[in-house]
């Protein structure tokens, strides 16, 4: 089950910690990775997070945006966010440079249950920017490779140019993570799969009883991933999905990110499929 990170109570929950952009890396068109450093060394020292959690990044004048953390949770002092430039805040972020200040509140939300999945085979099924919140999970697996069985990454994007972290795939493969990639539209050099992520399940031979699924991406993709997994007799309680809603306060106080009984910001973003299955196929939920 997802666990909440123990956090010391804060008397000023709305105050962001000041930080600075330490590095900006263009990943794919419209997506950048921002490395951040806290101004306060004590904060930098004590800050930790679990795979799957997110921060509220604050650009004064523009607002806050919930962005999942994409760095290695074990690597203290390093905090990265891979951001797709889409809304008000992220567009402003795109205009920032190394050294520019911003605010950080977090970490918030539930995590991929890496501890309780020890001993399992793991299928990570994600699409587009959805790989970003799973990268810390992959890092965790690499840090504890022997704790897990077979690990398969099924990843899809629109075109080959939209695939995140391609330079890391070989490293991952070296550490026995099977990486299967599909794109909607290939190009002249593309030799891989064409199609959507759920299709990557077709050739997969799973040991369903021992397999866990971690999925993040567009809701429609997650739906089909779950469908494929269930069709292969993966236990529903071993399927985890990361959901997205309008996370605005991140503390379950503002009410915006509700999904059925859940506040996605604090009960999620990572849910066990069982928790959210009844809301999955509903229009406008």
């Amino acid at each position: 089950m997802a666990t909440m990170l123990e956090k010391p109570p804060t008397t000023e929950p709305w105050v962001a910690h000041s930080a600075r952009i330490a590095d900006i890396r263009p990943e794919v068109p419209g997506v950048f990775t921002y490395d951040l450093e806290f101004d306060d060394p004590a904060m930098a020292e004590s800050y930790c997070f679990l795979p799957g959690q997110f921060n509220m990044l604050y650009l004064p004048g523009f607002g806050e945006s919930a962005i999942s953390i994409s760095s290695d949770p074990q690597e203290r002092g390093k905090l990265s966010h891979t951001v797709r430039i889409a809304g008000n805040v992220t567009q402003a972020l795109a205009r920032k440079q190394v050294g520019d200040p911003l605010g950080v509140r977090g970490p918030f939300g539930s995590d991929w249950p890496m501890e309780s999945l020890r001993g399992h085979d793991i299928v990570i099924a994600c699409g587009g920017i959805g790989l970003a919140p799973l990268r810390p999970a992959i890092c965790h697996i690499l840090n504890h490779r022997d704790d897990y069985g077979r690990v398969i990454l099924l990843y899809g994007s629109r075109t080959p140019n939209d695939l995140l972290y391609t330079q890391e795939y070989d490293t991952w493969r070296d550490r026995h993570i099977e990486v299967e990639v599909a794109v909607d539209i290939g190009d002249a050099n593309w030799r891989g799969h064409i199609g959507v992520v759920p299709v990557l399940f077709y050739r997969l031979r799973l040991k369903p009883q021992e397999t866990a699924i971690l999925s993040c991406g567009p809701e429609i993709m997650i739906r089909f991933v779950v469908f494929e997994a269930l069709a292969r007799k993966v236990k529903p309680e071993n399927i985890y999905v990361s959901m997205e809603r309008n996370m605005s306060c991140a503390m379950g106080l503002c009410g915006h990110c509700q999904l059925g009984p859940f506040f996605v910001c604090k009960d999620g973003p990572v849910f066990n499929f069982r928790q959210v299955e009844s809301y999955f196929n509903l229009e406008d939920m």
Binding site: M4, K7, P13, L253
Partner: peptide, 11 residues
């Protein structure tokens, strides 16, 4: 309960 009862309290 909503504003004081959870892990986050509205100050």
């Amino acid at each position: 309960k909503v504003l004081l009862g959870g892990p986050y309290v509205d100050p």
